[in-house]
Each structure stands twice: as structure tokens, then as C-alpha cells.
Amino acid sequence: MKTSLSFHKVIVGLLVIYLVIPLAATLLFSVAGKWDHTILPESFTMKWYIELFHDERFYGALQHTLFLIFVTVGLGVVIMLPTIFIITVYFSKWEGWLQTVAMLPYGIPPIVGAVGLIKVYSNGPLPITGTPWILVGAYFITILPFMYQGIRNSLRTVNAVQLVDAAELLGATKFQAFRTVVFPNIISGILVSTLLSVALLFSEFAFANLLVGGRFETIQIYLADKLNSSGHLTSAIVITYYSIILLVTGTVLKLTFKKDKVPSPSSKKRSVFFINKPFRQKNTALEGENS
């Protein structure tokens, strides 16, 4: 039995080493001064990072990427939340359609999506190829599957339809029910899909390169452009970029892990708590009538 465990240790060890080596080497390379004939760098320096953080282009690209993410993910939440809510609560017969439309982008790679987008928006009534706006549209569709799944699952977990029914029974309008009962309960679920979308868009290259290219330089385009220049500087970009991604996905993992750890009763308790709070007055009024 013991030999068997050490065998598995070797397998897992090899896998982890294989997965981590490129990252570790890039990290070392980004802080290395002289490193060409030794196993570890001869000297360490932060000058590549200093150089990077003095590069106006880097900030410009970062700004562009953040702008796109902010606008697209914002639009995603603002548009998808009411859409999914309305369809599940009022037009449940269209749910299948919504799911098909929302999951389709998952099976269409950006390279294919870009072909049609170029065709539609190169000329004609809305020539936005080459502007950031076409990316907003393309990215909205890119994050659609994640937004859809996140929001729909959250709505299901809190039993949104029954919650709305209950709230209505207690005298709330549907909008009130959404705002005060459903929304507070699904924020954390939406947060996860939002962060996933942020990470996804942060590393998106195909659309950015094909639809806009250098005319609105995102962080990925900047990185691709720097590939052939100083390796140390590019390593510093890669590490900076990856740290941001890690931060975002790390938060996602923490959030989902927390949710898994906390058994479901407590989340139900929370929703009961939320029902109680805004409707306490009405509740007591009803009781008063009965007595």
C-alpha cells in the first residue's frame, strides 16, 4: 500500500511541476538581472517592473481593457438580470429558447464569431469595426453563457418564482418582490459569474485582434505586440497580467468554496430572513386582520 501512495505522489508531483514550471520560470525571468548560463539567475532586479510601470502604453492598454470589461460586464448584469427574471417568472414557456440563445456562444469560438461580425459591421448602416463598440457587443455575447448560468442558478437556488409568489401574496408588487426579496438573495451568485466574466474578458485576444487590432489597444494586443521585444520586460507584463487574473479567479474560488462549505440550510435561512425583514409590517398587519 505504501509503495502505491508514493507512486501517486510522484504522478501528482510531476503534474504540478509541469504545470507550474512555465509560470515559475516567467516569474524568475521577470526579476532576473543576468541569467544565461546558470540554473538560477546570477542577480535579481526590479528594473523590468519599474520600466513597465513607467510605460505609458501599458497604462493605456490596461485602461482600454478595464473600460471594455466595465462596460460589458455592467451591461451584462443590467440587461441579463431583468431578462432572465422576466422570462422565468412571466414567460416560462420561452425558457428553452433563452437557454439555447444564451449557451450558443459557448460552442462558437471567437474566430468564427469574428467572421460574421466583420461582415455585418465593416460597412452598411453601422460601420463600427475598428472601434471599441464592436468589442462591447462581441464581449456581451462572449460572457452571455456565464452570466446566464450564474443568474439562472442563483434564481433557482433561492426559489425565485415561489419567493415572488409569496411576496405578492403578502401584498408586494412584482417589482418590489424582485428588488427587496430576490435581488438581495442572488447578489453573491451573480458576483461569481461577474468575476468569471472579468477574468475571461481580461484574457480575450481573438476578437480584440481581429475586430479592432491596434486601433484600440487592449492588454492582450499590447502583450502580443511586445512578444518580440525584451524577454525580461515581457515577462514582467505576463506576471503582472497573471497576478490580476489570479486575484480575480482566487476571489471566485474563495466565494464558491465558501458557498460549498456552508450547508444549504443556512442559505435558506438567509432568504427567510430577507423575506421577514421588508415584509414584517405587512405580516403583522395580516395577522392583525385575522385575529
Binding site: L19, V20, I21, T26, L223, T234, V238, L246, T249
Partner: peptide, 22 residues
């Protein structure tokens, strides 16, 4: 699983770059 999840985000341009410097 977390390591796998984290490294799965290392793809595209940055990944190619890493392999180029290695």
C-alpha cells in the same frame, strides 16, 4: 484542483510567451 484551476487560466498569448522564453 485549485492549482489546476489556476493554471487553466494561463493560456493564449501569455502562455505562448512563457514557452518561448523557456
Amino acid at each position: 484542483v485549485m492549482i489546476a484551476n489556476m493554471t487553466s487560466n494561463f493560456e493564449g498569448i501569455p502562455l505562448s510567451f512563457s514557452f518561448i522564453i523557456l
